[in-house]
Structures are given as structure tokens and as C-alpha cells.
Design a binder for these strands. Sequence first.
DNA 1: CTAGGATCCTGTCAGC
DNA 2: TGCTGACAGGATCCTA
Length: 294
Amino acid sequence: MPELPEVETIRRGLKGFITSKKLLNTEILCAKSFQGTPTTGTVVNTRRFGKALIIDLDNGQSLLIHLRMTGQLIYDNATTTATSASGPLQSGNRFAAGHPSENFVSALPNKQTRVIMTFDGGTLYFNDQRKFGFIKVLPTAEVENDAFIKKLAPEPWQMSTDDFCTRLERHKNSLIKATILDQTIICGLGNIYADEALFAAGIHPATRSGHLSREEAERLLLSARAVMEKSIASGGSTMATYVKADGTRGDYLDKFAQVFHREGQPCPRCGTKIVKIRVAGRGTHLCPKCQEVA
DNA sequence: CTAGGATCCTGTCAGC
DNA sequence: TGCTGACAGGATCCTA
């Protein structure tokens, strides 16, 4: 679930809360969700590689966190006077981001809480319904050598059209949606932003990657940047977007999604009904008129 | 090497 | 109501 914009939003939000705070204790409620030996230390940095979040401590150790499908990070601030640079992301004493659910606002820990990390100033809950995500402790110097991190391709902002075209050609028989979901080909997109980028570029998700013209490839690359930038600007999937101003629950996708979870509704561009099909094993949303099969 | 499908896990929802 | 299968904002492993 959480894709690059969500993880970037988490990074920015957490940075404001836990920088210079000391991690005092780690409580592991689900062994599968935690790798390595729990450690203690003061937070000196928060970084991101694609969808992976890194928290660096001053003891030479780092936390590598991947939320996969249903992970959430929810920080409960112990002090009401904490100053956060990320005002809009905060609601009461809590900052929450990741897979949108009632966990953002309900009592913690709960059935889906996998790890509880106590800081001198607050508590960080790692919730994960499906247990695909994890927190891993490793030496800071080894983060970039981690098997997952090492394989990641550049993000859309770091990739030229030429480079993108070369990568598409290497996977010319794959469907374009599968290609852009592959983090070793281009990094950061997940199921939402893949659909949104393909819609913005007017490309059918089941097009063979090698069939895209250079112009189409460039449109897709620029669209990938644009849809993720827009999501980051609106705060990704955070409590602030999940809980509306009047206190009611909302769909955070309302902030930017044109096609995702909008099957049956009119295409914002031409009015044709959005359809949902299956491509590369994933639910896929598109406008059958704006994204004709090549 | 690439391409496609199964799989990890829990929970929800549509359909009988 | 209760059961069943499909599916879910990700990535890896296995097979051809």
C-alpha cells in the first residue's frame, strides 16, 4: 500500500517528532515483523530509499522499515507542547501515516500492533495487518549494501527519458503496468500511482512496454513524477487526509485520484465510465476511451 | 536473462 | 446466518 509519497510523508512527519529523541525500548509483539537485535540510541537522521524508510541512530545502528501492503507508523506524542514543522499532518497528539484505517485514530496498541518503540517523548507503533512489512536493525554503514536497497532502480526524478526507454526496451514483452511496478526498473510507484500515471499519460496498462513510442515513454515518466509530487503535497495517506476537517472519515484518494478506486464513475477527462480490470495480477483502473489498447 | 504465476498473512466483502 | 472464494496501495521465490 504505502508507496513512495506515503513513505516520504511519513519520513517528513516523523523527522519533526523523533529527531534528537532517544529510542529507549523496543517491544516486539510479532517476531516476523522484526529482524536483528533491538537497539537503543538517539535519532540523528531519517532517510528514504524508494518505499523504504531509514532511521539512523547515533550508535552506528539504523532501522530499515518497509511497510509493504498494510503497514502503518503511528507516533503518539507524550507531550502536548511538542512543536512539529508538519502542522497539517498532526491531529491532537498523534501523527499517523501508511495504510489508511481506523488504527490512525483508535486506541493503541491493538490486535494489529506488531512492534512498539518507546522514545523519550513518545511512542512509535508499527501496525501491520498482513505482516508483510518489517523493521530491521542493521549497521548504518550497511544500509546501502542491504540486498533490497541495493537492487532499487532510480526514482522517476533521477531517471532520464533515454534511460527509461532503455529499461522499457529490456522488458519489451512485459505489460507496461508490470514494468513500472518493478522497483528494480523504476522505483517508487505502487498500484495507485501506476494507475494514475498511466491514466495521466493516456496509456493502456496492458500495453507491451516495447510498444511505447519515445513520446509516450516521456509522458509516462513525467506523469509518474507529477502524480507522486501532487500526493506528497497533499500529505499522502495520513491521518490528516483520512479524518476530514469535520471529524468524519474520508477517502484520502479524493485528494488526487482520477481513476483509482473510481470504477463506475465518469472519467474526469471525457466522462466515460472508469473500468476496473486485472493486469499483471493487480486490480487496475482505467478510462477505456482515454487509454485505448494499442 | 526475462515473464508470469504462486505465495506470504489477516481481514473484509460479495454471493450463495 | 454461515460458508466460500476473491481480493487487497508489496515484493520474493519458483518455474518455464
